[in-house]
């Protein structure tokens, strides 16, 4: 029988919930304080998800990195696959906050979106012109 201890993060009560799966697939829970906690523990047991936030390389901006995140939470066990994919990506400035960097990443139903607006670095441009 599969069993998992989950600390609920829905509210500051931080309930310690034990989830057990019966042979018929039904979940048995102990320690949950509310319905929302029950849902959280069930998700954590069956299919834990996380919002991924990281950076991708950007060219032509005044900094070398563009911060990005997944538009919705993605399966926890696929985070490393997404990180590997994003490590190989480079975008070009300008880039607007909220615009899509990777659509439907790895077919997981989440887009990778920029979380900062980065314009073309005018200082770099002026330096080029002077040269």
């Amino acid at each position: 029988m599969k069993q998992k201890d989950v600390i609920c993060v829905v509210c500051p009560n931080s309930c310690a919930i034990t989830v057990k799966q019966m042979p018929d697939g039904k979940l048995l829970m102990e320690g949950q304080g509310c319905k929302r906690g029950e849902q959280y523990a069930s998700d954590e047991f069956l299919a834990p998800k996380r919002t991924l936030a990281t950076t991708v390389r950007i060219k032509g901006a005044f900094i070398p990195l563009l911060p990005v995140r997944s538009s919705v939470p993605v399966p926890k066990e696929r985070l490393n696959d997404i990180l590997d994919l994003l490590a190989r990506i480079e975008v070009q400035a300008p880039f607007k906050c909220g615009s899509v960097v990777v659509q439907n990443v790895l077919g997981l139903g989440a887009d990778i979106i920029a979380t900062r607006t980065l314009g073309v670095d005018t200082c770099a441009k002026v330096a080029c012109e002077l040269r």
């Binding site: 911060p67 909220g98 979380t115 900062r116 607006t117």
Partner: peptide, 9 residues
């Protein structure tokens, strides 16, 4: 739930 730079933006 925004990232920090998004909130700033």
């Amino acid at each position: 739930e925004l990232a920090g730079p998004e909130y700033a933006q």
